[in-house]
């Protein structure tokens, strides 16, 4: 008779056992803020469809300290999401070969962050131009 009895270790709390996994759970957790911010926007959109008074009520709610506090947290979380999104990009996209050499990881991450910076600036300028 076989004496084999392979022992399977439980996975409970695996994400606490390694700093790499802790960071992974934090950057996955930014999705909660992306969802919450999308919900805030969706609510605003529904108020907009209901007319001026409803919309102004939503605008007023945005001025409450709770809302400002939430948006500061969301800014930090979604900013961190952006950073980690581009940080993992060298692993998720096909290798880019420039001049016969493979583009190093830092260049891909840096390029992504630069694109995010440029897109953000463009968005701000567009909003500023439309509002003026």
């Amino acid at each position: 008779m076989s004496k084999r009895r392979p022992y399977v270790r439980p996975m409970d709390g695996w994400w606490r056992k390694n700093p790499y996994f802790v960071e992974y759970m934090i950057h996955e957790g930014t999705a909660l803020f992306v969802a919450a911010y999308a919900a805030v926007l969706l609510f605003g959109l529904l108020r907009l469809a209901q007319g001026e008074a409803a919309w102004n009520g939503w605008l007023l709610a945005l001025k409450s300290p709770w809302s400002i506090g939430f948006h500061l947290l969301a800014l930090a979380a979604i900013g961190y999401h952006a950073y980690t999104w581009f940080k993992i990009m060298p692993r998720t996209m096909p290798p880019l070969v420039v001049g016969g050499k493979r583009l190093p990881a830092w260049a891909i991450t840096g390029g992504g962050l630069a694109a995010a910076g440029a897109a953000s600036l463009l968005l701000f300028v567009l909003v500023w131009g439309l509002a003026r």
């Binding site: 979604i78 995010a116 968005l123």
Partner: peptide, 9 residues
């Protein structure tokens, strides 16, 4: 959201 999220917020 990585490109525009932070600025929109």
């Amino acid at each position: 959201s990585a490109l525009l999220g932070p600025m929109l917020v």
